[in-house]
Design a protein around this nucleic acid. Structure first.
Length: 754
DNA sequence: ATAGGGTTAG
């Protein structure tokens, strides 16, 4: 199967000029303009230029109107200038820099309206603190701020989390005696609540007699953002006449605190109170539906959206897509996505994230590709959804492309730490553990998650010593290890067979760090003990668990039974596994291998018959390899690749050279052993050998070949790959279901223990 | 002429 190729690395971000949409039709507006010979207009409001101004739909036409305003001398009136600036700064097609140039070239002292307009315009930009500069300029020009000035400026303080500036402005409000204006009052409360000064917000609220739903709601949101939902609820219950915004704030409060059931309960009470929900209510409810997998309510909201003719609303549609994806209804999500004509970046991110969330990684990458081809610029959120797909599929080239794109194009990243952590994880899972470490060393915003990703990456590659040193470096830097850190530590010990050390860490985790072991920790320990043949200790650890062992734990025990040839215990373990996971064919295969190892061929045949009777098919072995940004997948005996002929020619050559090097396939395995990969034909047709052969013909001699396999590597392939690495002088990095194998000069980094 | 509280993607 082929995935669409990676687009070339973009150079500079495409500077989208806003005027590109305006067409030549704009000239038609001009013949309505009065010439200078027209009669004078006494009422400025009715001047045709100003009427045209209010009808302007683009900045392009506005500039034409502006030219005419100058011709007629109207620009000398502050009224016309105000209109012009207001339009430029706040209309849907705003051009703030043009508004500012009009402001700078004003022939007279600007009026408060113009200052207020500019302050508000700045408050809506990504750098809202500029509105404080405009405010200072206003004061310096001797223009007095009024009740319209402060709400926007407090919004700026709130947006940029500036409590100091907010406090100073609050004292200005009191000096000017504007504190009893309802708009100013509410914006002060909201400002304090949003910059984390809930005490001040409460003081302002308590001191004033103004207690409408609006000021109440501002305070409710403050409690929510402090995580005090129950206090918010107490206050909410006191609101005399709750309007839709008050209800929305309360419902959102529950959602933000992950209390989704209560959010839905709150919605029920809202309906009983007879308050009509609006778009915001629905967006918030959809979030709760997704988390609770409440498909039915979600569908109901979907029909509400259609009934209210809001299907073109992108916010609602992306929330619906997210809800469907979280409920596992990916096709319904995609149908909605396909129905949207003008997609914004959020809706792309939602759909890609939906695929990634359900582990449909190929679809996620295909849609990401389509997104780039549609000239939509990806964001950090896009990459947070795409990188796990790269990591899972081993799409290293695409991952590298994203890394370069982030370095070049994303100047300020909202989720910088999460993004770097995803990159570290991607490099590690794609086999580039050294690059993963380079990235880890280069970043300034390391979080516990970054340390954890690096640790488990090293563990995956069998570098137990480096993983353990990293963790001690981490604790030296003052980070407190969490349960995930210990999963990395214990799996490092497991991969390297460090039994005593593993036990020490396990004890330290519970005793020193008071972390109660989870299933994964037990899994690592039981795997570690069983592999070393310490079955009794593994069993007693299992008995000490206060939870039921899962399939993975029984599976690792069964695997250990195979390695140590313990038939009796193996039969017992297999029985447990059959009961827990009747559909797990791997369990039958393992038991069959145990019988084969003991020469009990009748039992081998019995298991095979059992599998056939149940109509069970094993998961087909599949290996993927990325060449020039394209991911190629191979199945057992695959003949569907476009270059199949060349691949099989190479395969024959490989077999010939392997034979000359003394490689003898284990024929007993072919006859009796049912290893993880179903034996359909010759061993040389195993998917990893196909992928390696393809790699040999399509990459330069001497370069590293990276492959990803969905199952564990079988013994024959492991031996063959070691020899191939020597014969062809290639480093081969193979990821199997459990870990990495670095094949080089005839050896493997796992020391033949996996 | 202008201004207040609430909402989404991982």
């Amino acid at each position: 199967m082929l995935l669409s190729s990676v687009p070339p690395l973009p150079t500079a971000p495409a500077s989208s000029s806003s005027s590109s949409s305006s067409s030549s039709s704009s000239s038609s507006i001009l013949h309505f303009l009065p010439s200078s010979t027209d009669p004078p207009y006494t009422l400025l409001e009715n001047h045709p230029s100003l009427i045209l101004l209010s009808q302007c739909e683009s900045i392009h036409t506005l500039k034409q109107v502006h030219g005419h305003v100058i011709k007629t001398g109207l620009h000398n009136t502050l009224f016309a200038l105000s209109k012009l600036i207001h339009f430029c700064a706040l209309s849907p097609s705003a051009d703030l820099s043009y508004a500012l140039s009009l402001f700078r070239s004003a022939p007279q002292q600007p009026n408060p309206f113009i200052f207020n307009t500019l302050i508000r315009a700045h408050s809506l930009t990504p750098s809202p603190l500029h509105s404080l500069n405009t405010f200072s300029e206003m004061i310096a020009s001797g223009v007095q701020p009024n009740s319209h000035t402060f709400p926007s400026i407090f919004k700026s303080c709130a947006k940029s989390k500036a409590p100091r500036e907010g406090k100073q402005l609050h004292s200005q409000v009191i000096k000017l005696g504007l504190q009893s204006d309802p708009h100013v009052h509410t914006s002060v409360i909201a400002m304090y609540a949003k910059v984390g000064e809930l005490g001040d917000a409460r003081k302002v609220f308590d001191k004033s007699p103004l207690r409408d739903a609006v000021s109440f709601t501002a305070l409710v949101t403050g409690y929510v953002s402090e995580g005090r939902v129950d206090d918010a609820r107490t206050l909410f219950d006191e609101i005399p006449r709750k309007d839709v915004v008050s209800w929305n704030a309360m419902i959102a409060g529950y959602v933000q605190s992950d209390r989704f059931e209560e959010a839905l309960d709150c919605f029920d009470v809202m309906k009983e109170a007879g308050v009509e929900p609006d778009q915001s209510t629905m967006v918030t409810l959809l979030c709760a539906c997704g988390h609770l997998r409440k498909l039915e309510l979600g569908e109901w909201i979907g029909s509400w959206v259609r009934d209210h003719r809001l299907s073109s609303n992108l916010q609602l549609t992306s929330s619906l897509i997210d809800m469907y994806a979280k409920c596992g209804e990916i096709d319904k999500a995609r149908d909605l996505f396909d129905g949207v004509e003008e997609r914004d970046v959020i809706i792309w991110n939602t759909m890609i994230g939906g695929y990634s969330h359900l582990c449909f990684y190929e679809d996620a990458l295909a849609l990401f590709d389509l997104m780039l081809r549609s000239n939509v610029k990806p964001t950090d959120v896009t990459f947070l959804a795409v990188l796990p797909a790269c990591a899972c599929l081993g799409a290293l080239d695409l991952g590298k492309w994203i890394h370069a794109y982030v370095d070049r194009n994303l100047k300020s990243i909202d989720n910088a730490s999460a993004l770097w952590t995803s990159l570290i994880d991607m490099y590690a899972k794609c086999g580039s553990i050294e690059v993963a470490e380079q990235v880890f060393r280069s970043i300034s915003c390391r979080s516990l998650a970054s340390w954890n990703a690096m640790t488990s990456g090293l563990a995956m590659h069998g570098h137990a010593d480096r993983a353990l040193r990293l963790v001690s470096e981490m604790t030296d830097e003052g980070y407190q290890p969490d349960d995930i850190t210990f999963v990395g530590v214990l799996s490092a010990c497991t991969q390297a067979g460090l039994v005593d050390l593993g036990q020490q860490y396990f004890n330290s985790m519970t005793q020193d760090y008071k972390i109660s072991p989870k299933l994964q920790h037990y899994g690592c320990m039981i795997d570690l003990l069983a592999r070393s043949g310490k079955f009794e200790e593994a069993k007693s650890l299992m008995r000490s668990m206060d939870m039921e062992p899962d399939g993975a734990i029984w599976g690792s025990l069964l695997n250990a039974c195979k390695v140590h040839g313990d038939v009796e215990f193996g039969e017992y373990v297999a029985e447990q596994l059959f009961q827990l996971e009747p559909e797990n064919t791997g369990a039958y295969v393992l038991l069959s291998n145990i019988y084969a190892g003991a020469g009990r061929w009748d039992d081998v045949a019995r298991i095979r018959t059992m599998l056939n009777d149940k109509g069970m098919k094993k998961v087909p072995g599949c290996t993927s390899i990325e060449v020039d940004g394209v991911v190629h997948e191979f199945l057992v005996g695959d003949k569907f690749h476009p270059q199949s002929k060349e691949i099989h020619t190479m395969l024959d050559e490989v077999d010939k050279l392997l034979g000359e090097a003394g490689f003898v396939p284990d024929t007993s395995e072919v006859l009796y052993d049912m290893d993880e990969e179903w034996k359909e034909g010759a061993l040389s047709h195993h998917s990893e050998k196909l992928a390696i052969s393809f790699g040999l013909i399509s990459t330069k001699p001497g370069t590293t070949i990276r492959i990803v396999k969905n199952l564990r590597v079988c013994r024959n392939c492991h031996l063959a790959t070691k020899l191939i690495s020597k014969i062809f002088n290639r480093e081969i990095i193979a990821r199997d279901r459990n870990r990495f194998h670095h094949f080089k000069d005839g050896f493997c980094s796992c020391n033949d223990c996996w």
